[in-house]
Each structure stands twice: as C-alpha cells, then as structure tokens.
C-alpha cells in the first residue's frame, strides 16, 4: 500500500493562472528512496511543500494513508508523520543542535523517554560529535547543520522523510555519507524517503526517480 498518493495533483501560486504542477499522479511507498528531479522551475520544491503539508493542492489531492491530506490536521501530520530536511535547514539559530532536535521531539508529542539522550544518540549517528551537538547551530558548518536538520527530521520517527537538496552544499565525501544515511533509513527502518535533487549522483542512488517537467507527464523509471 502506498503511503503517499498523488491524484491529478495541480498547484498554482496565483489561483490557477499559472499552474506550476498539473495533473500529477504518483504513488510513494515505504522502504523506498525516491528522487524528484527536474529543471529549475519544474515545481520540485512546490511538490515537496505539498507533500510535507505546508500548503494544499489547488487541484487534485494528496492522500496520506488513503486520507486526503488537505482534510486532516496538517500540524499533526508535520509534527509526527513526516520529517522534512529543508534546503536551508530551517534550524533555530539561537538554539544548540541538541535543543533543536529535542524541540522537534517535544512538538511531536510522542512520549519518548530521555529525549536528550535519544537526540544526542541521533546526532552522533548522523556524524556530529557531542561537543558540536551542544554548540549553537550558527556556529556549525553547512554540512554539520545539514546533519542536524536530518537528525531533527528523524527524531520523532516519522514514516516519511522529505529532503530538499540535502547534498547541495556538501563536498563529495559528506554527500556520500548523507545518501548512505537516507538509504539505510529506507532499507533498514522501512521509511519512505523522498529527495528533491539536481544531483545526478543522488538521483542514480535512488530506488525511483520522479522527473518533473513543465507540461510533461512524469515517468517512473526503476534504477
């Protein structure tokens, strides 16, 4: 059963005058890494926003576990069912890396014990040291902030992980590490990982690629 399903999805920023997405149909399943690719302006980030529940479809719908995403509590969906790694990380700069992760756990409302310990474990798992975990986010490098954003997205164990250009500013070594983390999440923890990327390397490492192009229907190609 697909965890997310796009049905004739369309989106416009200015009330149907210029459609960014139109007639999009697709299904996302657990245990798979998806790459959403396409040229700039094809609507990749818009689709990510739609999938993360930050905005709602202009036409058509997105089904999360067969429920219309526009009709369920999207705050709850965002805080519990989907973990988003934003392109610009969107971490709270006045907090430490650890506090950012713990805050997400708090907001999710999932009764976890020893949140601090669990958050620290997670940060170490994504490659941060304990010392860096206690630093303010602003004092971390781009790659380290990326790892904090991933840890935050994973902290409350969502079924879906969305990542917008997660390797955009990273060196090759770090890029491989991050892709490795996503692949393990899908294969070992049965997560549905959806990555928006320009990188052919990332697209190649994905299980499925959703290519977006204006006025062109999407195609699915197994890799």
């Amino acid at each position: 059963m697909s965890i997310l399903k796009l049905e004739n999805l369309g989106y416009s920023y200015d009330r149907q005058k210029t459609m960014v997405l139109e007639g999009l149909n697709y299904e996302f399943e657990k245990g798979t890494v998806y790459a959403i690719v396409g040229k700039s302006g094809a609507g990749k980030t818009t689709l990510l926003s739609l999938l993360s529940g930050l905005t709602t479809a202009t036409t058509g719908k997105i089904l999360f576990e067969d429920k219309d995403l526009s009709k369920i509590d999207r705050y709850r969906f965002r805080s519990r069912d989907v973990g988003v790694v934003f392109q610009s990380f969107n971490l709270l700069p006045h907090m430490t890396a650890l506090e950012n992760v713990v805050l997400s756990m708090d907001i999710s409302g999932k009764g976890q014990r020893n949140k601090k310990e669990a958050a620290m474990e997670l940060l170490i798992k994504v490659g941060l040291t304990e010392e860096k975990a206690n630093r303010r986010v602003l004092k971390l490098s781009g790659g380290e902030q990326q790892r904090v954003a991933i840890a935050r997205a994973l902290s409350y164990h969502p079924d879906i992980i969305l990542a917008d250009e997660p390797t955009g500013n990273l060196d090759m070594g770090t890029q491989d590490e991050i892709i490795g983390i996503f692949k393990r999440l899908a294969s070992e923890e049965d997560k549905c990982v959806i990555i928006v990327t320009h990188s052919p390397v990332v697209a190649e490492s994905a299980d499925a690629v959703l290519e977006l192009a204006p006025l062109r229907s999407p195609s699915k190609s197994a890799s």
Binding site: R78, S79, V84, N90, L92, S104, I107
Partner: peptide, 12 residues
C-alpha cells in the same frame, strides 16, 4: 522566522 520554523515543524 522563528514562528515560520516552529509552525513548519508542526507546532500549532
């Protein structure tokens, strides 16, 4: 920005 991040990660 803080409001944006908090609401984006699911805080009502």
């Amino acid at each position: 920005y803080e409001v944006g991040v908090l609401t984006a990660i699911g805080m009502k």
